[in-house]
Amino acid sequence: EVTLDSSKAGHVLNEKLTVENALRGLLMPSGNDSANVLAAATARKAENDEDMSFAKCEAVFTDLMNKKAEELGAVNSHFTNAHGYHDENHYSCAYDMALFAMAFMQNETLAEIVSEKSFSGNGADGQFADDPEVITQDYNWVSHNYLITDNEYQYAYATGIKTGFTDEAGECLTASAEKGDMKLISLLFKGSDPARWTESASLLEYGFNNYARVELTAAGAAIEEVPLTKHNKLQGDTVPLVYQNALVTYLPTNAVDSVETTVTILDDYKVEEKDGTVKVKAPLTKGEEIATVTYTIDGKEVAQMPAYAGADIEKGTIFNNIWYGLKTFFSHLFSLKGLITVVVIVLILAIIYLILKRMRYGGGYGGGYRRRGGYTLKSPSRRRGRRRW
Rank of each mutant, 00 (worst) to 15 (best):
Y211C: 05
A177S: 15
L354R: 03
F104D: 05
Y375P: 05
Y324Q: 12
T296A: 06
D63L: 07
E168D: 10
H83Y: 10
R384Y: 13
D33W: 09
T376N: 14
L228R: 03
F61Y: 13
A43N: 02
Y375W: 15
T264F: 09
S30Q: 11
G364K: 02
F104G: 03
G316A: 10
K279T: 01
R371P: 00
K162G: 11
Y157E: 12
N48E: 14
S30V: 05
I318Y: 05
A222D: 15
K179H: 10
E272I: 14
T264Y: 08
A39P: 03
V134A: 13
P252Y: 15
L147M: 07
V271E: 08
A219T: 11
R370Q: 12
L188V: 13
V271L: 02
L147H: 06
I351H: 11
V75A: 00
V278R: 07
V342G: 03
S335C: 11
E152A: 01
Y95N: 00
F319I: 13
E272T: 15
D5Q: 06
E289S: 04
A307S: 06
N32E: 10
V343A: 15
G191V: 04
S186R: 07
C93I: 12
Y361F: 14
T285S: 15
I185G: 01
A219L: 12
K357N: 09
A175M: 09
V280P: 00
F165L: 07
V19T: 02
L266H: 13
Y206P: 10
L356N: 10
K183L: 09
I318H: 04
W141L: 08
G10Y: 08
K45M: 12
K16D: 12
G368R: 08
R370G: 15
L173E: 08
V259N: 05
L4M: 05
I148M: 06
L349D: 07
L23Q: 11
I297F: 06
Y365G: 11
F128Y: 15
P132M: 14
V12H: 15
D257N: 13
E50N: 06
L17W: 06
S143V: 00
L339C: 07
T229C: 15
H83C: 01
Y146N: 13
L326P: 02
L23K: 11
W323M: 14
V248K: 12
G164Q: 00
E71P: 10
